[in-house]
């Protein structure tokens, strides 16, 4: 399990984030999320608002974003709910970063299927590029986290970088993806295996082969 902790409440933190407010476009989105719930149940939108806040912090700092305490307090105030309830949510879910992260948050899956398919090599590759677990690399670009299963076992090993998954990785393919990101390009998300679209069986279908090119009625064959 990741070692999570809240960023300490310091005067510098208060000074930097004490005046945080949603930008007009985020505010519009936040209100849309709140409007999904009945009157008086605005608290239900807390997860969406925390995500928006994290994204806005990310935009302001040119990183993936995180949740400083004053920002959580702002969300609590926005939703008229006790701040401790907001912090409970933010500390529970791993998608909310509690400490500053780099521009790209590389989350490597280390659960069994990925581990069997070589996630240890992926982590080594990340580390050899100067990434540190739980910290920000010196160039400010990378944060490395080892996470549990993200449901891409068919295309293991995988990493999640900010909002995209990169699957079927080898250290070389990962390097290509990271190099592209570092240059400011947008590499293709999803599987990195040439010829593979999504999570279909590697090396072509093994079942329902007739369905590949056209609709096929199997019923007579049962």
């Amino acid at each position: 399990m990741a070692d999570r902790h809240l960023a300490p409440d310091t005067p510098e933190l208060r000074e930097r984030w004490g005046s945080f407010e949603f930008s007009p476009e985020h505010k519009a989105k936040a209100d849309k999320h709140i409007a999904k719930y009945p009157d008086g149940r605005q608290k239900s939108a807390v997860m969406a608002l925390l995500d928006l806040a994290q994204r806005q912090v990310g935009e302001e700092t040119d990183t993936q974003g995180w949740l400083p305490l004053p920002v959580m307090e702002y969300v609590a105030q926005y939703l008229d709910m006790p701040v401790i309830r907001v912090v409970e949510v933010a500390t529970f879910y791993f998608m909310y970063n509690l400490v500053p992260v780099g521009k790209y948050h590389v989350q490597v899956c280390g659960t069994t299927p990925c581990m069997l398919r070589g996630s240890d090599d992926i982590i080594t590759a990340c580390k050899s590029r100067g990434m540190v677990k739980g910290g920000v690399s010196e160039d400010g670009l990378w944060t490395l986290t080892e996470v549990e299963c993200m449901g891409n076992c068919a295309t293991a090993p995988m990493v999640q970088i900010n909002d995209d998954n990169y699957e079927d990785l080898t250290p070389e393919r990962l390097d290509a993806v990271l190099d592209a990101l570092a240059k400011g390009d947008t590499p293709k998300a999803g599987t990195q295996e040439p010829g593979r679209h999504t999570s279909e069986p590697s090396g072509g279908p093994t079942t329902l082969k007739e369905m590949v090119s056209e609709n096929h009625d199997y019923r007579g064959e049962w």
Partner: peptide, 12 residues
């Protein structure tokens, strides 16, 4: 008075 809460999850 909402002031006590449970932070983090699971064993933590």
């Amino acid at each position: 008075v909402d002031e006590i809460g449970a932070l983090y999850r699971g064993e933590d």
